[in-house]
C-alpha cells in the first residue's frame, strides 16, 4: 500500500481538548479582567495563581494544533489496497479523484454487496456522524487517488458549495433507494 501521507490514529478528542484549553485560558483571563478592574489584592493573588492554568491551556492547544486533522490530504493507493475496513473507526470522508474503488457491504445472514465507485464518488460519510465505525470495506480496484477530508472540511464544503451539496444529496438518495430495493 502506498500512501502520500500516513495518518496517525486520531479520534474526536481534539474538540474536547480545545474546549479544555478554552476553559483554562478563559478562566485565567476572566480572573485577569476582574482582578485588574477591581484591583482587589485577593483576586490579584488568585489571578497570579491561575498562571499555571494558562500554561496548561496553551499546552493543550499546542497538542490540538500539532495533531489536528489536516483539512484535505491527497492519498494514493495501489490496486488491491484497503482504504477503510469494516469496524474501523470512521474519521474521514473520502472523495475519489482517479481510479476505481469497490465498496463491499456485509449483509445480514451472510454474503456481501459490492459496489464500484468511480472518480467523483465519495465514501466514508459515516464519519460525519462521529464515533461510528465503518460498515463497509473500501478497496482500490485499480491504482487510485483519493482526497481524504476531515469531517469539518466536508461540512464546510457542503455548506458553501451548492453543487457539492446537490451531488451529496443525490448520492444519499440513490443509496436509500438501493436499500429500499434490497428490502
Amino acid at each position: 500500500m502506498a500512501r502520500a501521507w500516513t495518518a496517525t490514529p486520531r479520534g474526536n478528542w481534539q474538540p474536547k481538548l480545545l474546549a479544555a484549553s478554552q476553559i483554562a485560558v478563559g478562566f485565567a483571563a476572566f480572573l485577569g479582567v476582574v482582578s485588574m478592574a477591581t484591583r482587589r489584592p485577593i483576586l490579584m493573588l488568585f489571578f497570579a495563581a491561575a498562571q499555571g492554568l494558562i500554561l496548561v491551556g496553551v499546552a493543550l492547544f499546542v497538542v490540538v494544533a500539532a495533531t489536528a486533522q489536516r483539512g484535505t490530504v491527497r492519498e494514493q493507493y495501489a490496486a488491491g489496497d484497503v482504504i477503510v475496513r469494516v469496524g474501523d473507526r470512521a474519521r474521514y470522508v473520502y472523495v475519489i479523484v482517479s481510479g476505481s474503488v469497490e465498496v463491499v457491504t456485509p449483509r445480514e445472514g451472510g454474503g456481501e454487496g459490492v459496489k464500484r465507485l468511480e472518480p467523483g464518488d465519495h465514501f466514508g460519510e459515516i464519519a460525519l456522524v462521529g464515533r461510528a465505525p465503518h460498515h463497509v470495506t473500501a478497496r482500490a480496484v485499480t491504482a487510485a487517488v483519493v482526497l481524504r477530508l476531515a469531517p469539518s472540511t466536508f461540512v464546510a464544503l457542503y455548506t458553501s458549495l451548492p453543487a457539492f451539496r446537490e451531488q451529496f444529496r443525490d448520492v444519499l438518495e440513490s443509496r436509500a433507494r438501493e436499500l429500499d430495493r434490497r428490502g
Partner: peptide, 12 residues
C-alpha cells in the same frame, strides 16, 4: 485559536 489560546496567553 492561535491568538486567543497561545499568543495572547503567553503575553499575559
Amino acid at each position: 485559536h492561535l491568538l486567543t489560546l497561545a499568543v495572547f496567553p503567553l503575553f499575559l
